[in-house]
Amino acid sequence: MSELLLLFDLLLTVTLLVLATAAIMSREPRRAVILYIAFGLLLALVWARLRAPDLALAEAAIGAGLSGALMLAAARRATAAKRQHASQPGTKGETS
């Protein structure tokens, strides 16, 4: 039993680290946000594994759900504003 549980812990940790790295290294905002939501899901799994259901609840509801939805909206507005800004003549140099 303990070996299988250890294997599960190992798989969870490696997946979590890969997800965190991918979310930080990602260049487009929307991709980063979706990776962040997946990261929050797996972090809630870690809290569940550590027998902390209250922390898992908070992480899933606030960390992944609410801030994920808010950041998706923010990323959408950011790309739209950037495109609008870039389409206006003369201001192209200011957008990065």
Partner: peptide
């Protein structure tokens, strides 16, 4: 209850 919140999260996202 955590699973319940997960299923709500999917719909919201």
């Amino acid at each position: 209850d955590v699973a319940l919140i997960f299923s709500l999260l999917a719909a919201i996202a």
